[in-house]
Amino acid sequence: MKRKLITFLSISLISLILYMALSEPENSVPESIKDEVAAALDYFPELENIPIEFKFKKKIKKSVMMAQPSFGSLFRSRKNRGYVVLISKSFKITGKKFKTVNVPKDVLIGWIGHELGHVMDYQQKGNLELIGFGVRYILLKEHVRKAERTADLEAVRHGMAEYIIKTKKFILDNAEIDESYKERIRTYYLSPEEIRDIVEEKD
């Protein structure tokens, strides 16, 4: 009986992996943020044919948004990879919950642009590199800083500097946003001043 159960579970796991690997990733955007996603994607023509699913999640630990490869993509070639951008339905300001979709339009575009910066970074990595990246992101704070600043930099290089700055200033200049979240932004992400310096050097 035990052997049959193990065999059944093994077959089920293999079937799930094959299904995820062979199923086609799809583009999907919630209607409520369709305009903001389209505006951000306009700055990333390289992602035009890359399947990206944007979906709301009740809560994301320590973040408002998070980009990651779809599970099945880890069994695909890089050119056939798809991604998921998770978006927290709400975040807290002074203990009260506010819907993410209600932040200023340019701020939301900047937040999405940062996540697309992550996708650009992921597109440059092989599958084993991505797995190693995920492990280091969980375990090493210095790797978190490198990953988040790289995503900011990708967005800035693609012309989204003003949007990224507006997003940072919305967080850092808002007296009602929890100080611990502000400190995370200061520690791991590019500052508005650094972004302006990058733009000036580019010009």
Rank of each mutant, 00 (worst) to 15 (best):
M1L: 09
K4W: 10
L5N: 00
L5W: 04
L5G: 01
L9D: 01
S10T: 12
I11D: 00
S12V: 08
A21S: 11
A21T: 06
L22V: 12
S23V: 12
S23C: 08
P25Q: 10
N27I: 14
V29G: 10
E31H: 11
S32W: 01
S32F: 01
K34T: 04
D35W: 03
A38C: 01
A38G: 01
A39V: 03
A39Q: 12
L41R: 14
L41H: 08
Y43A: 15
P45H: 07
E48N: 10
I50T: 15
I52R: 05
I52V: 13
K57S: 09
K58D: 15
K58Y: 07
K58I: 05
I60L: 14
I60S: 06
K62C: 01
S63C: 07
S63I: 01
M65A: 15
S70N: 09
L74D: 00
F75Q: 04
F75P: 03
R76E: 00
R78G: 00
K79W: 10
N80D: 14
N80E: 13
N80W: 09
R81F: 05
G82S: 12
V85N: 02
V85Q: 08
I87Q: 02
K89C: 05
K89M: 13
F91L: 02
F91I: 02
K92T: 11
I93R: 13
I93C: 05
T94N: 14
G95S: 08
K97M: 10
K97I: 02
K97Q: 12
T100D: 02
T100P: 06
L108N: 03
W111F: 15
I112F: 01
H114Q: 07
H114T: 08
E115G: 08
E115R: 04
L116T: 09
G117F: 02
Y122N: 10
Q123E: 15
N127M: 04
L130C: 10
I131T: 08
G132N: 13
Y137F: 15
I138H: 10
L139I: 13
L140R: 14
L140C: 07
E142C: 02
H143F: 15
H143W: 12
H143T: 06
A147C: 01
E148T: 01
R149F: 04
D152M: 04
L153A: 09
A155V: 02
V156N: 03
R157F: 03
H158K: 12
G159A: 05
M160V: 00
A161E: 12
E162T: 09
Y163R: 03
I165W: 09
I165N: 05
I165S: 02
K169A: 03
F170C: 06
I171Y: 04
N174L: 07
A175V: 14
A175K: 15
I177G: 06
D178H: 13
E179I: 15
I185A: 11
T187Q: 14
Y188T: 09
P192C: 07
V199M: 06
